[in-house]
Nucleic acid binder design. Structure first.
Length: 156
DNA sequence: GCCAACGTTGGC
DNA sequence: GCCAACGTTGGC
């Protein structure tokens, strides 16, 4: 099993939106970056776990846990002219963008803030991709050790 | 709103 | 294939 971190802006789609979604499940649409797409397409398998992270908001941080419940398939929003994620260059016969379905496993009572994560940036989380300077990927891998450690500091 | 970082685009 | 210009991300 692999671990991941899914970034989302709560203004657009936050963890509470996921909680309200049918079956607490959503298609993770709108990823328009090749590295992130490749991780979804080539790296994610059903049953993988991920952190749901809020970015570009008052208190950025990890809000809860999701699970990959459907492996990569074409992102139809790329073909939807009315979607903000429309990409006229994506050919339906050969889709450029893929997505996975994720399901909410649990929302933390207390988020693990970016500030809290950074307190360990010199230690247990020193190689964590999402903490790397200049990182802008909306999907990043999390190592099993990082996963375990982050869960251990939840609720601090 | 600012700015650093980085990806993409397009002219050559 | 290079690289400058531009757009986007995301923390602050």
């Amino acid at each position: 099993m692999n671990y991941w971190l899914f970034k989302s802006e709560p203004q657009t789609f936050g963890i509470d939106d996921l909680a309200k979604s049918p079956k607490r499940t959503t298609a993770w649409e709108g990823v328009r970056n090749y590295q992130a797409r490749n991780m979804m397409r080539d790296g994610m398998r059903a049953g993988d776990q991920g952190f749901f992270y809020h970015s570009s908001c008052d208190v950025p941080g990890i809000q809860g846990i999701v699970e990959v419940v459907r492996e990569a398939y074409p992102d139809a929003s790329a073909f939807d002219r009315k979607s903000p994620y429309h990409d006229p260059a994506s050919d339906p016969a050969n889709p450029r963008w893929m997505l996975v379905d994720v399901k909410l496993v649990r929302k933390f009572a207390r988020p693990i803030t970016l500030e809290a994560l950074k307190r360990h940036a010199g230690g247990k989380l020193k190689d964590m991709v999402v903490l790397r300077r200049g990182n802008r990927l909306s999907i990043t891998p999390v190592t099993p050790a990082e996963w375990k450690f982050i869960l251990s500091i939840a609720g601090e």
